[in-house]
Amino acid sequence: MDFDFKIGIIALPGAALANKTGSFANEVPVFKQKTCTGCNLCIYYCPEGVVYGDKKTKIYNFDADYCKGCGICAEECPVDDIEMVLVEK
């Protein structure tokens, strides 16, 4: 009896979503939404693709299930509108 792999141990598309990498994070971003210009750089630069939001409303947020807390969004925000805060564990 064979083990139930797809032949050659093939993985299904996007199956990595099952892995909640939010546990990596020591810090997470807070979008202060005071000076935001809607430039979208936080979306562009996020290595995980966890930042989302709207240019028009200038409301941005992040997916805490996957954010690894690198802080690039806060570092690169041209108007200093993102702050990193410690995660309570």
């Binding site: 996007g14 990595a16 994070a25 996020c46 995980e48 693709g49 930042v51 989302y52 240019k55 690039i72």
Partner: peptide, 29 residues
Amino acid sequence: MLTKEDTHKELFTMGHTGCSGCAQSMAVK
């Protein structure tokens, strides 16, 4: 506008185990 649901449909999805701040994963995305 990009919603949370949209981000879960990226062709290179989150959930990988690249290091925090990995520029390679950013480039792939």
